[in-house]
Amino acid sequence: MTDSSRGRPRVGLFVTCLMNLFRPNIGFATAKLLEEAGCRLVVPQGQTCCGQPGYNAGDEDSARALAQQVILAFEEFDYLVGPSGSCLASIRHDYPLLFAAAPAWRARAEALAAKSWELTSFLVDVLGISQTGARFDGVVTYHDSCSGLRGLGIKGQPRQLLAGIEGLTLREMAETEVCCGFGGTFCVKYPEISLKLVDDKIQNVLATGADTLLGGDLGCLMQVAGRLRRRDLPMRVYHVAEVLAGLATGPSIGEGPLASG
């Protein structure tokens, strides 16, 4: 599985910009899961953002600059792994397209794409893990974030891992595959439409009777949690990594600051 001398893969942790700022706990959860799975983890300092804000706004040039930065920071590792379907879908699909006209960079982008994984799919599809040995007491429902779902085919992996969590019951919501209205900068450029979409999502979440919402992308989770708080609706919101790592113990997303790990 790896070319490293000790047989443990060297993994570069992709630190998403939202997580770095708003929810460090997801980073610690991801690190814990990867290290417990036998990875040698490195957090490169030379990273900032995957470049989607530029790419999705039509500024391909800036997106390319960011993509180059990520390639340079991560190409030395066996794997790049991050707790976000959105960033990882971009690294896997968009990077090679961005360098369509530059063969040398294109090859590097493709090589990186081939070894870049979203956290839950890395644990399940690459490492073959089915249990993380954590406990979580609650009835949860799971929102499938669009880029992870349609860009990377992430659907079964988080559910498979959650099935191994003691004390946890998963209750599926209606329209779990429908967008929550986050959409990167969409949520601030078209706030009224975005709020309509998140209210539809919340209606489906509440209808399950679950006490906790989980998902794999912090952007979507901030969107739903931020709206829940504004509407004073009680519901815990965690990133799936926090639950899988047994670190979903403090205040949930939007419920006040977590003491840093």
Partner: peptide, 26 residues
């Protein structure tokens, strides 16, 4: 500067230190 967001949603209060800061410190 975040009117588009806070128009209808709260923003989570972050911890005072970023992940990278904590990680490398630790």
């Amino acid at each position: 500067g975040a009117h588009g967001w806070t128009l209808g949603r709260d923003l989570p209060t972050p911890a005072a230190r970023t992940f990278l800061e904590c990680w490398h410190h630790e």
